[in-house]
Nucleic acid binder design. Structure first.
Lengths: 224, 224
DNA sequence: CGGGTTCTTGACTATCTTCAACGAAAGTGG
DNA sequence: CCACTTTCGTTGAAGATAGTCAAGAACCCG
């Protein structure tokens, strides 16, 4: 899950991402906190997320961390390069995963539809990551946080009176490491959005977006 | 071409990137300054770069630009998402390209070796982009510039007495937009590297790396 | 050689980080 | 179930890094 605002065109193009193809492998269930794989592990399977949320991270020797993406239902994680995983993947919200053999990505295991679906997921991943570059390289802290909240709201928000509500399964430092910021800066951006009436907070995890248009404008860099 | 320093493991895993599979399509030659495709264009072909250098860019409405990557010989560019290109691609150095049909990515056009090679390129692209996230999200300006020069030197440097020499086909603003910096900051980082004796400059485009170890150390964040 | 672009450098500013303190929430053990 | 401890989140003040603005130097091209 990347959070740059898609253009009309790219949004449309990224639509066919979910696949419900059958598989010979039984689903995997993992509790919050468990790891699906670690960086350097040999790639055995790739996984489509059925329910729950996972987190993909990379570490630098000195402890600096980058959250590569959050995996939400419909996303596919675990694409290999050179036969090994290049991120850690752990579970934020109890998760049900559909595993696929690597051969399914390579040739479909005799199922052309599955093959196409997995390939499309990989290609959409490339496109989404390109969008995320713009965020990390060229957007301000306020724009990044607004983008993050806006995209999650669009994909997973539930209508409430007065706005759309989302539950954030990740902590502030996850958001910070995803957006290339510090927890303090993320926290201050949340506060600024709250004080300007764009969002309301109900506890730490629950965000109600009161003014989606303003949030979108902020995420594109148009100061409200 | 992404410029984060690969770990031992990932470096090894990214080795099999070049492919020399035959194709039914004739090679394409483009002069510097010409566009291979634009954002939004329907994807007709993907291309392996035989010689030359290309540049992939994305734009924000307000003019902010992100250089997504530089395409060097052996790299594959033009991976589609939803049937359209999501970047502009133009030529920095006169280029010879080997085009492939989309069907070659999907099923190999009856050539399993080609199919595997293109798929591997796409997957390696994902891994390389994940590394680049770390750069944009978590590295300082000095580390980014050092990483950039180090990786180009490793891949394309030519031995000279007293160091390894590279020719940069892109201008400072390209480097800046690739690393998420300004041209001034890139220029200052070059100057700092020159004054500390790590590199020498011979004109604007030619860099001689005098102390590769120091450059690598700087790129990993170990102050010299 | 001349004009225009690109690069470099300097001074100043803004943004984000760092450091520190405090409060709230969550986990633990009696 | 409650007190204690620990972690997480927020806020403030100070500081550092990179950006902005501006001018001059180097480079490129005709």
């Amino acid at each position: 899950m990347y959070v740059t605002i898609f253009s009309e065109r790219s949004a449309k193009s990224c639509a066919p991402r979910v696949l419900e193809a059958p598989s010979k492998l039984p689903p995997v269930r993992l509790k919050a906190g468990r790891y699906l794989y670690h960086e350097g592990d040999e790639v055995q399977r790739i996984y489509r997320i059925g329910s729950g949320v996972v987190r993909l991270t990379r570490l630098l020797e000195d402890g600096r961390r980058q959250v590569i993406s959050f995996g939400y239902p419909g996303d596919v994680v675990g694409f290999p390069a050179g036969g090994v995983h290049h991120t850690d993947c752990d579970v934020l919200v109890d998760t049900k995963l559909q595993p696929y053999r690597l051969t399914a990505l390579r040739d479909g295991d005799g199922d052309p539809v599955l093959h196409q679906a997995l390939l499309s997921s990989a290609l959409n991943e490339i496109s989404a990551m390109q969008d995320h570059f713009m965020m990390l390289g060229r957007k301000s802290a306020a724009e990044r946080v607004a983008s993050f909240l806006f995209v999650i709201t669009e994909r997973f928000g539930e209508d409430r009176e007065g706005g759309r509500q989302i539950t954030l399964p990740m902590c502030r430092s996850d958001i910070a490491d995803f957006l290339g910021l510090t927890t303090e800066t993320v926290s201050r951006s949340f506060t600024a959005l709250r004080k300007s009436g764009v969002i309301a907070l109900d506890g730490i995890q629950t965000v109600i977006v009161l003014d989606p248009k303003a949030l979108q404008a902020l995420s594109d860099g148009y100061a409200s």
